[in-house]
Structures are given as C-alpha cells and as structure tokens.
Computed example of a mutant assay.
Amino acid sequence: MDFGLTDEQELLLESLGDLLERECPESYIADLDLNHQQPTSFRKAMNDAGFGSLGFPEEYGGTPCDAVTLVLLAERVARQGLNNGYGLELLQATDILEFGNEDQKREILGYLAAGEVPFALGFTEPGAGSDNSAMATTAVHHDGMVTFNGTKTLITSALASKNLLVMAKDPAVENPREAISMYLVPMDLPGLTTNRLDKIVWHISDSCEIFMDDVTLPESCLVGVKGAGFKQLMRNFELERLVIAANCLGQAQCAFDDAASYAAQRVQFGKPIGSFQLIQLKLTDMAIKLENMRNFVYRTAWMVDQGLPLKSQGALCKRYCAMAAFEVADEAMQIFGGVGVTVGTRVSRLWRDLRGHRFGGGTDEIMVHIAGRQIVKDHS
C-alpha cells in the first residue's frame, strides 16, 4: 500500500498550515474556549480559501474531494488544538445538498459561506439517544402544515444556529424506523425555546435543551422523503465517525507533541524528565497508539474511496481512536503533572475535549454493538 501523499494533498496541507498559523493561533483557540465562542472567523477564512466547499457538488460551487484528503485536512486542523474545527459542518450540509429542496440548499450554503454553523442536529432526547426507537418528538402533518411537539437535549451548537435539523416521528406510523422524518426548522419560531446546558467539554460548541410546543410551519420544511429520515441520516453517519476519528488523531498528536517537548525541557533531579525511563515508556506507548490510530483512519478513508463496504470498520475505527486519543491525552496530562491541570494549559483543554468524543458520534458501547453484531454475522 502506498503511504505517500499526492502532490495535491501536499499543497493543500501546506496551504492549510499557513492559514492555521495566520487565522487560528493557540491564543485564538484559548480565547474561544475561555469565552465559549464559536470559531466563526476561522471558518469564514477556511471558506474564503476554498476549503469550505471541498466535497460539495460542482453545481453548488464545490470541488470534488476524496475521503483520504478530507481526513488529512480534519486531522491537520485538530493538530492545531482546535476541536471539531473542520469536516463535520461539511458532512451536515451534505444531508441538505443530497436530500433538501433548492431553497434549503441555498440557505445552508449561505450560512457556510459566512462561517456560521449551518444547523444543529436535533436527534437526542431525554429518553432517546442511542435507542432511536424510543424517540418521542412528534411531527403531525395537517392541511399543508407540520406541527412539532417534544423535547431534544444535548444538542450541539443549537444556540449558534439559525436552524435545527429535526428528527421527529409520525405518531400514526407504528414502525419507528418508517415513522421518522427529517425537517429543517428555524430556531426563532413561536413555541420553540431553549435552555443552555453548561458542560466541561467542547466549550467552543454550545449544548442545550430544546422544547417544541405546537411549533407549526409549512410542509416545505420536510427534508427528503417522508418516513425516510432515519435512513437519510445514516447515509453520512459512517463518514461522520471517520471525521471524528481523524479529529481525535489530530488532537492526540497535539497533546503528544506538547508532552514530548515539555519532557525534553522540564528539569528535575538535575536532568530533563524525558531522560527518565518511566517518562520514555509513556511517550513510547503514546507514539504506538498514534501510529495505530493514523493507520486505522487512513485505511478506513481508503476503503471509502475504493467503494468498499465498511461494515464494522467505521465503528471499530471510531471506538479505537476515541479511546486511544483520550489515553494519549491522559498520559500527556500526567507528564505535565500539576501544570497540566491548570486553566489555560493546552493539554488540559485537549484532555477535556477528547473525553467528549467517547460520547459524540456514538458512544464507545454503541460502537461495540454495531461492530460486534457485524463480526458475528460475518462468521456465521
């Protein structure tokens, strides 16, 4: 297998590196984290430089992009220390570009061009997360309108979004998989209220509860086919997990680099702590995990580009990378010692944010459920 990068990938990464140093220095990221703000200016700069349209259809101003290149770019942004800085908004917009109507497509692309979050994904509920069959939010169609009632929770970036991509079920349909549809709902409608949830991870992405009480709008808010919402959402879940894994890889690499540099400089007992074997053991095992993560991410992306069915591969990749990346960050925190837990130290932010990826995009346990049953099926 060829592990070399193409000339185009080398140029893209070089250009991205220059943009990151200019538009996304550590001081910028730390300030966003401290003030719980979205990286809007950086996203706009990415879009202006052409990165924001990679992977979109040409008819919408996009440029074709393979999965390997996408994860390379996502990894590089994350290596700067920015959590979820690239890739996920593009995948979200793909849901609209693939299934939405023309008005919805123009609106979402406009938000992306301005560096804004195109929409928040309204999926998780107080009683329905991994168990999507327990979804209780309803969408009742009547006289050309749709009325929503229900509660969503732990919705990422809802306060920064103009729209909510709502997953809701028709109470008249018994099969939960056939009852769920996808809708693009403006956040400023009467009857829709929010409650911000403070969390210890992902400070640059807000989370909140959303309450819908007889929220009504025209049926044109439907995205795609009625009753096919779950299938539509699943279309991009595998690629989302891959981008999350690449994000974990980049942040873990950032934590490793910081820890290795600190170990080479921090002097105790008259010598750098990096000269002690126990610290070297930590760094060695961290490097092994990073190499395994990188191979896992790149091979999974290569499989996507070859049109090969991922089956258990996407879930395996996401589970391993989320867990291994946090382990790398945890060891990096240990190498820093007391300094590592102080507010403002980058490794503490990486440690916090990487812990969140063991939930986001599917929990560690659900990845076992997805991969495990496929493994058994393959050997039956």
Rank of each mutant, 00 (worst) to 15 (best):
D2I: 02
F3S: 12
E8D: 15
Q9F: 00
Q9A: 12
L11N: 13
L13R: 14
E14V: 00
S15E: 11
S15A: 06
G17V: 01
D18Q: 15
D18V: 11
L19F: 01
L19K: 11
L19G: 05
L20N: 15
L20V: 10
E26S: 08
E26H: 03
A30C: 04
P39V: 04
S41H: 12
R43W: 13
N47M: 02
D48T: 07
F51G: 06
F56W: 08
F56Q: 09
G61E: 05
G62T: 02
T63H: 07
P64Y: 09
P64N: 12
A67D: 08
A74W: 15
A74V: 09
R76T: 13
Q80F: 01
N83C: 14
D95Y: 09
F99D: 11
E102V: 01
D103T: 13
K105R: 14
I108V: 12
A113R: 15
A113D: 00
A114L: 12
G115W: 08
V117E: 04
A120F: 07
A120Y: 06
G122V: 12
E125T: 12
E125C: 08
G127L: 09
G127P: 11
A128I: 03
G129W: 03
G129T: 13
A136W: 07
T138D: 02
A139E: 11
V140S: 03
V140H: 03
D143Y: 03
G144W: 08
T147S: 08
N149Q: 07
K152D: 07
T153Y: 01
L154A: 14
S161I: 05
E174N: 15
A179I: 01
S181P: 14
M182N: 10
M187R: 14
D188H: 04
T194Y: 15
T194M: 15
N195M: 13
R196F: 08
C208Y: 13
D214L: 00
V225E: 15
A228Q: 13
L239C: 07
R241G: 10
R241T: 00
A245T: 10
N247P: 00
C248N: 15
G250L: 11
Q251P: 01
Q251Y: 04
Q253P: 01
D257W: 06
A259D: 06
A260F: 01
A260C: 03
S261W: 07
Q265L: 06
Q265I: 00
V267H: 06
Q268H: 06
K271S: 10
P272I: 00
S275L: 07
F276K: 00
L278C: 03
T284P: 00
A287C: 03
I288C: 02
I288L: 05
K289I: 00
K289T: 00
E291P: 00
N295D: 07
T300P: 04
M303A: 07
Q306I: 01
L308N: 06
L308F: 11
S312Q: 09
G314N: 07
G314Q: 03
C317R: 11
K318I: 02
Y320A: 11
A322E: 10
A325P: 01
F326K: 08
F326H: 11
V328R: 15
G337F: 10
G338C: 06
G340Q: 09
V341N: 08
T342L: 04
H357K: 03
H357M: 12
R358Y: 05
R358T: 13
F359E: 14
G361W: 05
G362F: 07
T363D: 05
I375L: 02
V376C: 06
